[in-house]
Design a protein around this nucleic acid. Sequence first.
DNA 1: ATGATGGTTTAGAATCATTCTTGGTTACAA
DNA 2: TTGTAACCAAGAATGATTCTAAACCATCAT
Lengths: 142, 142
Amino acid sequence: MRRPSARVNAALAALDRAELRKTPQRIAVVHALVDDTSHPTAQQIFDRLRRQMPTMSFATVYNTLAALERAGVCRSLRLSHDDSARFDPMVEPHDHAVCDRCGRVLDVPRARERAEIQEFRVRAVERVYRGECQQCQSIGGS
Amino acid sequence: MRRPSARVNAALAALDRAELRKTPQRIAVVHALVDDTSHPTAQQIFDRLRRQMPTMSFATVYNTLAALERAGVCRSLRLSHDDSARFDPMVEPHDHAVCDRCGRVLDVPRARERAEIQEFRVRAVERVYRGECQQCQSIGGS
DNA sequence: ATGATGGTTTAGAATCATTCTTGGTTACAA
DNA sequence: TTGTAACCAAGAATGATTCTAAACCATCAT
């Protein structure tokens, strides 16, 4: 346990705001996730944590990651058809580049244009718009 | 069985090109999928086909959809975290709009800009670049 | 301290989508 | 016809994720 990074502190503050207790398990997940840019899966985070905290349950990792996502600490991504969910501690809007061959996932800041992604040879772009369809708008509600 | 649409014929021709037999099961899947813009799941396609072809197996639907994707007849999409794969018979490059509330998936032609998607209130955009990372490029190969 | 309360964790079972296996069937070639 | 390879049905197996039940633990009032 080294000195807490700014990201760790921000994540713990978000736990407070979401009225979630700062349990040892949750703090451990925050530490494992928050400075990791490799977009790890729940399994990978579990494997790491298990070493330091052998009683940690797999379900706790899943539950905690879901709680952290609701608290705005991370986002989950489903980037390939055969892969499990990946978790991204960068919550500011940005895009992703996925390598067809090794599966590596890179963060792509919004500022960059497609052609400018350094060192990545782009084969295709997929865009997903999230929002409300006409029917659901007309129904109204939250 | 009504008169075959242009899309059906194109799909069957693609089966030929891929050297896949035009079996009754595959033809049925092609008919069920090819003019459907609702982005159905394998389960939905299976449910429909089962009525006309009660011996159809679920695994056959999966295998056939995978074969059709390899043959370039459709594409599979994984658009939400809790949902199963959806199949899209439109293979020309285009994007998708996903309703947060009802899950409906709409096709968005590339020509349109984000703000121009008719009748859809956009909350967020996600972009995924597919290609090759630097490391895999330097390794070379196919 | 004691006990009640409610959120949390654990371990394992359950669920769900997807893939695999096995054995039988079909199409086509020799 | 016989052989061969592709194909299919049915159900088992796999793997990710979620659920359940019981135990745990902090907090608060007695």
